[in-house]
C-alpha cells in the first residue's frame, strides 16, 4: 500500500480539521478564528479530493470547487465584518464581546 493512499490523506484531513477546530475554540481574535475556519474548510476539501482519488472520480474536484467558492464568499463577508467592527470602535476584535453587539 502506497503512503499516498487516500486513507492517509484522510488522516491528514482529520488532523487539519482538529487543529482548525482547536483554533476556532481557543483563539479570541476574530481574525485568527477566521483563519482557523479556513483550515477546517481546507481539511474538508482535502477529504473530498481524497475520496475522488479513491474512486478515481472527478466529482471530488467538483466538490472542491464548491468549497472554494464557499470559502471565498465566507472570507469576503467575514473580513468585511471584521473591518466594520474594527472601525466601529472594537479594535481588539474580541469574539467574547460579541454578545454586546446589540444596541
Amino acid at each position: 500500500m502506497s503512503a499516498a493512499s487516500p486513507t492517509h490523506a484522510l488522516l491528514l484531513a482529520t488532523l487539519l480539521f482538529a487543529v482548525g477546530m482547536l483554533g476556532v475554540l481557543a483563539r479570541r481574535n476574530l481574525l485568527l478564528m477566521l483563519m482557523s475556519i479556513e483550515i477546517m474548510l481546507n481539511a474538508a476539501a482535502l477529504a473530498f479530493i481524497a475520496a475522488g482519488a479513491r474512486w478515481h472520480a472527478a466529482q471530488g474536484q467538483v466538490m472542491f470547487l464548491m468549497i472554494l467558492s464557499l470559502a471565498a464568499a465566507e472570507a469576503a463577508v467575514g473580513l468585511a465584518i471584521i473591518l466594520r467592527l474594527h472601525s466601529a470602535g472594537r479594535p481588539t476584535l474580541d469574539a467574547d464581546t460579541g454578545n454586546r453587539l446589540k444596541g
Binding site: A9, L12, N42, G52, G60, Q61, F64, L68, A72
Partner: peptide, 18 residues
C-alpha cells in the same frame, strides 16, 4: 498534497485562488 493525490486541477486552483 492534491497534486500527489492525482488532482492537478485542484492543486492549481488552490494555489491561484486560495
Amino acid at each position: 498534497v492534491f497534486f500527489a493525490l492525482g488532482a492537478p486541477f485542484a492543486a492549481m486552483l488552490e494555489v491561484i485562488i486560495y
